[in-house]
Design a protein around this nucleic acid. Sequence first.
DNA 1: AAAGCGGGGTG
DNA 2: CACCCAGCTTT
Length: 336
Amino acid sequence: MESNIIQFSEFLKKRHFTKSILLWFKKNNRKLIWREQRTPYTTYISEIMLQQTTVGTVEKKFPVFLKKYPNFKSFTKSSEKELLTYWSGLGYYRRARNLWSTIKILNTSYRSEIPKQKKLLLTLPGIGVYTASAIRAIGYNLPDSPVDINIQRVFSGLYGSELSHKQIEIILKFIWPKNHSRDFTEALMDLSSAIKKNNDLIINGLDLKKYLFSKNQKKIQTIKFKKVSNKKIKISFFIIRHKEQIAFLKKPNLSFFDGFEHLPNSQDEFSSELFTTSQSKKIKDIKYTITNHNFQIKVFEFFTKSRNKKFKWFDLKDIASIPLPTLYKKILVLVP
DNA sequence: AAAGCGGGGTG
DNA sequence: CACCCAGCTTT
């Protein structure tokens, strides 16, 4: 089995795969905003944002984020809550909370720098095998070879059937340009992106499309395809208004959107009490899906005469500056 | 409705 | 290895 992998690696070497891809990359690299000022810091931020998140989404959020947080030290003037307002819309909010923890560690114990050593990187919250390698290869241009789903697809395609993470590491060790880790990593990412877009892609006589789609096409395209049934959750959210203020929960009861302010909802004790003591009207039904969960949501609006102290009250005009996930923003848009 | 996105963490 | 975690955009 592994002898095939060695043979394949030698084939790539004979075809000058590495050099060809680097040359192709020089002309065809994507002009991505986080590549403009490549530092270990910008690499770290962009790699965390790009975890399970599309390039297009990150392109919108990254510049605003970097203006607010231009370096590790800039976080000392901020708070986890404020960080979440800048992360809002990116999803997987655990990443933001891990980022806060990690940067706190870096500012107190690492002189506001991110370490180069893989062992140290792996101790930091939110940094796993891929991100640690990416920070080393892209941020520091050190000889390391991150393997993400794109790189896995490129080499599985070239090989003709799905390769394991370990097998790809063997291949990469064979062909890796030790002094050009940053370029080569980015080149492989861009290659994957180009393969999806272009009808033909011939690099130094190597017809990548032909290799990628001639054999076992279906198998390669379904790498990492997981079927998981969605859980249905019925829930109501309450917009409770008093004059120009809106009620939020003091103690969140939802396991989602950790760290954000939460709208009162039907999973709370007070729910039935609310309906008997106040006038309400249903203003909308919303279907909302996140990974493995389907929410069937009813939104109710209440106007109360008193400001119940069970809640935290925010002025309507301040809504934009408090940390809210996209769902709550969608709900609050309904407030005139 | 479903797919897909430059994974992390735990055992 | 397997399994769980848990947002948004685009198709």
